[in-house]
Design a protein around this nucleic acid. Structure first.
Lengths: 142, 142
DNA sequence: ATTTTTCATTTGTATATACAATTATTAAAA
DNA sequence: TTTTAATAATTGTATATACAAATGAAAAAT
């Protein structure tokens, strides 16, 4: 259904949620080749770039709560893609060799997704949209 | 954390999800006065405007799946805000008197939220952002 | 008039996420 | 140095949402 026929098409609540759901779906497609949901994929890439990264920092980077990060890590551990090494109150998350092997594929997913959404609105306009969303996000995150 | 310090700040997946979560939070605040999550509130308003509306149409309007609508309606029934009357394979959802009494308060929530997010970016710019998001949404929704 | 297909809704189950409470540890204050 | 406070991570529980399967009814085809 076109948003123009939606009663709440002018409402940011409605709009941002609807968009997020659709973009999520698109992203899921792009990440199917590695059989990971996008959220797991992004977390994994973060850890590959910075092995030993702590859950708290991951949470900040991904703008998710620590508890959510714990859950994501659990799943990635089950898949043998990361290991957690805990000393005292801090944990460090490391990618496994299996994850390292997967890196090129992960990058391909990101690339794939980027191309997919560039096709939708064009690179320029998509980039502007992203900027607008970030601007709003930043003003909100107190 | 500012998005500018986020590794994936240029990624639509990341951006749209992060924005949706933040906007949701803002909306929850606005809807607290009626003790309803925003999604329930919007559904209820739809049904108040068009009593007897069917779940399938509600789903289309809100761009949610029918199963999600069933769940939302269940909650609203528990709260005695709507009733479902089923004949054959179709259902009609009606607002209760309690819901009708609530209508001014619901409108106040919408108004409140709208003001809250206008304060963030300004009316003009917010409106442009919404347009951009809708445009993307529309091109995506196959 | 039966059978088949389509359709609207619901149910079972799964994922993503959050909040509040808990645990365990380190740092600060007394 | 003992107590207190702050911090990092986790766990328990709850909400929002979806997909796939099931149900039940109406419409279409034979």
């Amino acid at each position: 259904m076109k948003t123009s026929t939606c009663k709440y098409a002018q409402c940011l609540y409605f709009t941002s949620n609807a968009l997020a759901r659709k973009v999520e779906k698109l992203a899921i497609e792009s990440w199917k080749r590695v059989d990971l949901p996008p959220s797991h994929g992004y977390l994994l890439m973060l850890v590959l770039e910075e092995p030993g990264m702590q859950p708290g920092n991951i949470a900040a980077q991904l703008q998710l709560t620590p508890s959510t990060i714990t859950r994501l890590i659990e799943k990635l551990e089950e898949r043998k893609l990361v290991v957690r090494i805990t000393e005292g109150k801090i944990s460090n998350v490391y990618p496994t060799p299996k994850a390292k092997e997967l890196l090129p594929e992960l990058k391909a997913c990101v690339q794939d997704f980027s191309e997919a959404n560039s096709k939708v609105l064009g690179k320029e306009e998509t980039s502007k949209l992203v900027q607008g969303m970030n601007k709003f996000s930043d003003k909100l995150s107190g």
